[in-house]
């Protein structure tokens, strides 16, 4: 048997794959958080709950309307995005002139309400969501067998992250968003409807979370805790990458997922804490985060 540093190669591959998949979810979720924090200055604690809501919307589409995985991948983010727009218009937009703490409290409260309602309705164990037929079975990579669905999750997440980055860095709406993140009043004095930009940005960030939720549904089954399990690590990812940094979120998300996977192979006891140890080290060495501007 081939081994690397005394561990079987296949075990290493297996954990690396798992790490990459977790990393894909970290990247998608922290990307949305970064975009929202950059423009709104709101730390969106409801992000995990909206991720979960994406999963449940996909499940409901299948259960009640017989709408399958592929349309749900588009529809669920749209539906949750509209929900986010309503949240921003009715609740969050009252907080912009107040301290950060209020945004945190409000969105944390929203998360508790959404998760509580889901638990009431579906119980703690949740509901199963099938893998789409096209992606059943393993994929033979030559050196290992990889479940096709897991490969798809990594590719889809990386694709969406790349597309989001391109939109922000290379398009007109992206340059407007970056400018408004720097100095929103001046951008508004240049004729841009900034309140609408803020609403749409929140909706888009939330839609990214819902997209991740649909991707996650066949892997973890749809349950009320799926967001809460992820979100703490995701906040650590955002802090390590640098609050508000787009590229930082993507790179750090995938990187830390892989690091977690490696830790599971070589020192499993630390696998749950390694992300937070990295966070402490980064905060000591570079308080603004790896990609943040000091």
């Amino acid at each position: 048997m081939i081994t690397i540093f005394g561990k079987p190669l296949l075990l290493l591959y297996g954990q690396l794959t798992l790490g990459l998949i977790n990393g894909a979810f970290y990247a998608l979720l922290s990307l949305g958080l970064a975009v929202i924090f950059g423009l709104l200055n709101i730390i969106n604690f409801a992000h995990g709950a909206l991720f979960m809501l994406g999963g449940f919307v996909a499940w409901a589409l299948l259960e009640y309307l017989d709408i399958g995985y592929w349309p749900a991948l588009v529809l669920a983010p749209l539906i949750v995005g509209v929900f986010g727009v309503v949240m921003e218009k009715t609740l969050i937009n009252r907080l912009y002139k107040l301290d950060h703490l209020y945004g945190l409290l409000l969105t944390f409260g929203c998360a508790l309400i959404i998760e509580g309602l889901a638990r009431n309705e579906f119980g703690s164990s949740g509901v199963p969501y099938p893998i789409p037929d096209e992606l059943r079975g393993p994929l033979d990579l030559g050196f290992m067998m990889l479940p096709a669905y897991r490969a798809w999750v990594v590719v889809a997440a990386a694709g969406v992250c790349l597309a989001t980055w391109l939109v922000i860095e290379k398009t007109r709406i992206g340059s407007t968003l970056r400018a408004a993140t720097e100095n929103a009043p001046l951008v508004q004095a240049f004729g841009v409807n900034v309140p609408r930009l803020i609403t749409l940005t929140y909706g888009a960030g939330v839609a990214l979370a819902a997209f991740a939720g649909v991707l996650a549904a066949p892997i973890y089954s749809v349950n009320p805790n799926m967001g809460a399990n992820f979100i703490i690590t995701v906040f650590a990812v955002v802090v390590i990458g640098g609050m508000g940094s787009i590229l930082g979120s993507i790179v750090t998300g995938f990187g830390l997922g892989i690091l977690e996977g490696l830790t599971k192979v070589y020192y499993p006891q630390a696998s749950a804490t390694v992300v937070f140890m990295v966070m402490v080290i980064v905060l000591l060495a570079r308080p603004a985060g790896l990609f943040g501007k000091a």
Partner: peptide, 27 residues
């Protein structure tokens, strides 16, 4: 609102110049 005032036909060049660091010259 400021955006509607701008759309009434006023261009504004602020005191601190207001050049955006995260945007290129063309942007």
């Amino acid at each position: 609102r400021p955006d509607l005032i701008a759309r009434a036909g006023i261009g504004f060049c602020p005191e601190e110049r207001g050049i955006f660091a995260s945007l290129s010259v063309t942007e």
